[in-house]
Write a protein that binds this DNA or RNA. Structure first.
Length: 550
RNA sequence: GCGCCAGUAGCUCAGCUGGAUAGAGCGGCAGCCUUCUAAGCUGUUGGUCGGGGGUUCGAGUCCCUCCUGGCGCGCCA
């Protein structure tokens, strides 16, 4: 239990003696201005209505009813319209750091999920080209969200869904075929809707080299398989370079071969929500809030294939059937219209899947600036900046941090030149440097950091303002993690890291650890160790390294 | 036209689910290296929170409405 929890519990206890309702849950927050103390609560104002009294009178009564010493409060004041401000004993507060030292692996962890399984699907790029910067944002987000959920007690699987079937794959095959035939001397004729990137040419060259029997480019199926395999391999390497590991890869094509697609179609037909029109099979998604009905199976004139959304529904049925009663999909906002459709399909099947299944985390588009100009991204036109480009230019940690330092639903301008030219002033180095500096203290002092404990140490000497600020900042980590996990917003951890690094640098600059009187050195070693471990924990959640020296 | 997201300092963005005098980084300006890493620190500059209504003790945060920008509105995925 953190000291905030203890204080909250004491507040509730005191409030009940005044006749407050059982479900009262006071909000504790850090006042912006340190002059207002260490914690503030709006409890008295919340109780004004139910108790029919003035907030300030209630505040008086609360103070009288509380056992201050038990929760380390040295002063309580009433301010403004009825805020209660509490000042904590520095040593009492600092003892909260000991939980970090005693159990660094569990600091900030919570058991909200109780080990329940959740699948986080992200990236899920078509194997029709390299991963671009938008996929990178998904990879960083999906991975960090997964880690956050693990941190809060969920059993997480990271899943990559490969759209290795459908019209785009056919386009890929034909584009490859065109290049293969061009190598054989034919004029290059990339089909409408085909892919123009140079990588297609490279794949065609390798195909020709490895398939001398098909120099004419007649075996479309072989070329498709070859191109898909090559691009999947490339994408795997990109994710590897980014440090993202998936637990499962799910292939769209498998939904056709194992009968899932047919089963889903039969289920939808039986539901009574389908109809045929102009030779095509429609699902009445308008029954479930969509603004128009969607085609499931194209008319014969258009090829008679299923549209992407049928296997997509079948795929999400498998998530449910595989035992994932929580599913989170990380997607670009340009795909947001699929949400209604997939959910409508699942509801139409009427097999007990809840309405809001699956959850979606949408991220807005990434704009790439290069040479002072926006790079228009178009896979089919062959113009893009890849994740690999970014990693090569600014480094894995910096790319991850840049992707994660802002909310997913705000647009992201990734200025490649700026990221590279200013890499030395990059916030990620600032955070990592704070960690490295704490490591440096132990290195110079020739102290094994893992042996630092609070045994016999008077943490009350950590009374300097810079020290108290750092202590409070570190102790806010669990609440930050909870907020980030509850809202699926890793950027909160990034913001916490920046704040903590700032507090750490300031403290480091103002106060020495080594060479002080022993009582002070021992207490400050505890703070340095807690800072090191706290920052490392935050970095780990975001998938960044915590270097010991820079 | 309809739907989703956004609009906060010169720039890029936070703002902890409605709290007190709206913050950070970068940029600009002025300082700080015989002391555990100057990839750092200190001070300073800079705001009608897109506009207008409303809800209440209290609004950047919630509701309505306009304006601006991005994305989507395929028998593409």
């Amino acid at each position: 239990m953190t000291h905030a929890d203890a204080l909250r519990a004491e507040l509730v206890r005191a409030a009940r003696t005044l006749g407050a309702p059982d479900d009262v849950s006071p909000i504790l927050e850090r006042p912006r201005d340190p002059a207002f103390g260490d914690w503030a609560t709006n409890l008295a104002m919340m109780l004004a209505k139910p108790l029919g009294k003035k907030p300030r009178d209630i505040a008086d009564a609360l103070i009288a009813a509380m056992d201050m010493a038990r929760v380390g409060v040295t002063a309580a004041e009433i301010a403004g319209p009825g805020f209660l401000n509490f000042r904590l004993d520095p040593g009492f507060q600092a003892r909260g750091l000991l939980t970090i030292l005693e159990s660094p692996e569990t600091f900030g962890r919570l058991d909200i999920g109780h080990g329940a399984r959740v699948v986080v699907e992200f990236v899920s790029a078509n194997p029709t080209g390299p991963l671009h910067v938008g996929h990178g944002r998904q990879a960083a987000l999906g991975d960090a969200i997964s880690t956050l959920l693990e941190y809060t007690g969920w059993n997480v699987d990271r899943e990559f869904y490969y759209n290795d079937a459908g019209a785009q794959i056919a386009n890929l095959a034909k584009s490859t075929q065109a290049q293969v035939r061009a190598i054989g001397g034919a004029p290059l004729e990339i089909p409408d809707g085909g892919y123009h990137g140079d990588y297609i040419r490279e794949i065609a060259e390798r195909y020709v080299a490895e398939h001398p029997a098909d120099a004419a480019g007649d075996d479309l199926a072989a070329m498709q398989a070859f191109a898909v395999a090559a691009l999947r391999h490339e994408q795997d390497l990109d994710m590897q370079a980014f440090g993202v590991k998936f637990d499962t890869y799910y292939l769209e094509s498998s939904l056709y071969t194992d009968g899932s697609v047919n089963k889903t179609v039969e289920g939808l037909k039986a539901s009574g929500h389908t109809y045929e029109e102009e030779g095509a099979l429609f699902l009445r998604t308008t029954d479930f809030g969509d603004d128009k009905d969607r085609v499931m199976r194209k008319s014969a004139a258009k090829g008679g294939d299923y549209t992407y959304f049928v296997p997509d529904v079948a795929y999400h049925v498998t998530k449910w059937e595989r035992g994932y009663y929580r599913a989170i999909n990380v997607q670009g906002a340009d795909h947001h219209s699929t949400i209604t459709r997939v959910r409508a399909g699942l509801q139409a099947l009427n097999i007990g899947i809840p309405k809001g299944y699956p959850d979606y985390v949408l991220h807005q588009m990434v704009t790439v600036m290069k040479g002072g100009e926006e790079v228009k991204i178009s896979k089919r036109a062959g113009s893009y900046v890849t994740v690999r480009d970014l990693i090569d230019e600014v480094g894995r940690d910096a790319v991850r941090y840049f992707y994660l330092m802002r909310k997913g639903d705000s647009q992201l301008v990734f200025d490649v030149d700026l990221a590279r030219s200013q890499s030395e002033e990059n916030p990620v180095y600032y955070v990592q440097m704070a960690h490295a500096r704490m490591c440096g203290i132990f290195r110079v002092g020739e102290i094994d950091a893992t042996t630092v404990t609070g045994d016999g140490v008077d943490l009350g000497v950590l009374s300097e303002p810079a020290e108290q600020e750092l202590v409070k900042q570190l102790l806010d980590f669990p609440a930050t993690v909870k907020g980030a996990a509850d809202n699926l917003e890793p950027h909160r951890v990034a913001a916490w890291l920046l704040e903590t690094a700032r507090a750490g640098h300031t403290w480091y600059h103002k106060h020495h650890v080594l060479g002080e009187p022993e009582a002070i050195t021992r207490a400050r070693l505890v703070l340095a160790r807690a800072t090191q471990l706290g920052i490392a924990a935050g970095l780990r959640i975001l998938g960044l390294s915590a270097p010991e020296r820079m």
